[in-house]
Amino acid sequence: MSDQVPRILLVEDDLPLARGMAENLRAETYTVDIVHDGQTGLERASAGDYDMLVLDVMLPRLSGLELCASLRQQGVNTPVLFLTARGDPHDKVRGLEAGGDDYLTKPFNLDEFLLRVRAILRRWEWYRASVASASALNFGGNQVDFRSFRARAWDGREHELTEKEVMILKVLAERPGEVIGRDDLLERVWGQEVYPSTRTIDNFILRLRKLFEREQQTPKHFITVRGVGYRFDSEGTAS
């Protein structure tokens, strides 16, 4: 993506709204394709090389949430910005659980929409560039492949990682031995605006410990620095 114009697939069944969004995205120099139902959206997103998807939640034939979940199951990790008319936190959580990266409630502010698109593309760009320079991580008998989102743990078990899990691993592995604040992790992986609480990071770290630590109660690789954040120790020498 870095040397090309980012390609965005917009799946929105309301024609005037889809046109308005596409025109604005194109004005920002992005390449935009529009489809109006979930099933076609899934086919295009599975086949096409998109840098980002903008999905309406309520779509004919296949909902945006189902579309996103299907893509993730296929191993397509293209970032997703959900658009929805429902604004309650439960729906937001559903969207993020389905594998979404961000969530915007209709009617939205144009600048905010463009800002979020930019932020998601920037994070994805960083991840891709970072993976290009180091596509694997080995620590304490664990092996993580950042390209395939797969990992083999010290006990021989294979794991499919989520996009967020590999991004957190990436951020931590880039600066081994350094303390990385929760806010910093949030900003790099999600963007601050998405999650209301930094506790989210704690939950992801717990999951990573469960997968990769020999003893979760006394972690050697994902070390909590109380009140600040986390430190990654690839050698596992922490006490």
């Binding site: 309301d14 005037p16 709204l17 308005g20 969004m21 604005n24 309520m58 658009l83 929805t84 008319a85 429902r86 409630t105 209709k106 009617p107 939205f108 502010n109 144009l110 600048d111």
Partner: peptide
Amino acid sequence: HQFKTPLASLRLSAE
């Protein structure tokens, strides 16, 4: 949903 979608379109056009 039915109200917010045209509202979103309206706001988008105005902005």
